[in-house]
């Protein structure tokens, strides 16, 4: 589904991704872990070309994309993204946030979009907030709206960049629940997170990154219980 090959990226002289190769199969949930600054977000952002890698290739659903591809906007409709800080549109109601992509990108008539929006908001348990503005709801609710906004586009792939890191502990659980259900429904997902329990329960593959390199990857059991690399062991012992 996603094929990342020999990806390298520099910010100026600072190399932040070092020859990364990674495959994500359909319906697979890949969780990326690693210390701060190791390049997890950058890797994720390269997948939908919010960042441009200088070397390597990325193919999605069998098609190779570059920064210049005319089809980037089409590809992005297939790849939903959820951000650490939600990035809801503050000048729009919750409902309008959710249907913005439908009406503006997919050109679906407003009435139909609202129907779809309603069922999606219902799915994340926020139908009653449809007419409120993002500033009036909690962080956990905001993140669930952001997930609904991405899901309503019916993407084939979902990218999550620390979706619960900005949330109070008691709000994390609702968001993780939504993500678990999504994984259960067979969504292909790449998730950057520090929620190790989530990784253990939901991930098919866990990837450990350090200083721009993919150090090792494997099943949750392999990575959490029998890490092969010393750096992985050190990292896990620090956080577990």
């Amino acid at each position: 589904m996603i094929k990342i090959e020999n990806l390298s990226k520099w910010f100026g002289k600072n190399q932040v991704l070092d020859n990364i190769s990674l495959n994500v199969d359909p319906s697979e949930v890949v969780v990326i872990i690693g210390p701060s600054g190791s390049g997890k977000s950058t890797l994720l952002r390269c997948v939908n070309f919010l960042e441009k890698a200088q070397r390597g290739t990325i193919s999605i659903d069998g098609k190779v994309y570059t920064q210049k591809s005319k089809k980037l906007n089409l590809m992005r409709q297939e790849v939903g993204m959820v951000f650490q800080h939600f990035n809801l549109f503050p000048h729009m109601t919750v409902m309008n946030n959710v249907i913005e992509g439908l009406t503006q990108v997919k050109k679906i008539p407003k009435s139909r979009a609202v129907e779809l929006g309603k069922s999606m908001l219902d799915k994340v348990g926020l139908l009653d907030k449809a007419d409120t503005y993002p500033a009036m709801i909690s962080g956990g609710q905001k993140q669930r709206v952001a997930i609904a906004r991405a899901l309503v586009m019916q993407p084939k792939i979902m990218l999550f960049d620390e979706p619960t890191s900005a949330l109070d502990p008691e709000l994390v659980v609702d968001v993780l629940e939504v993500m678990k259900n999504l994984a259960g429904d067979g969504m292909t997902m790449m998730v950057v997170t520090h929620e190790m329990r989530f990784a253990r329960e939901v991930a098919d593959k866990v990837v450990y990154m350090d200083r721009g390199r993919l150090i090792e990857s494997g099943t949750p059991d392999e990575i959490f219980d029998h890490p092969q690399e010393q750096r992985t062991q050190e990292f896990l012992s620090r956080i577990l």
Binding site: N48, L50, N73, L74, R76, Q77, V79, G80, M81, F83, H85, N87, L88, F89, P90, H91, E100, G101, Q104, V105, A146, R149, A150, M153
Partner: peptide
């Protein structure tokens, strides 16, 4: 915030559309 542009772009919006629908209304305010 740059995140606003990124959210719009990741929905598949063109830069122009992001400007018109997302950035301008907030900037004007």
């Amino acid at each position: 915030d740059r995140g606003q542009t990124e959210a719009g772009v990741s929905l598949g919006m063109t830069r122009r559309k992001v400007m018109r629908r997302i950035i301008f209304p907030q900037a004007f305010k």
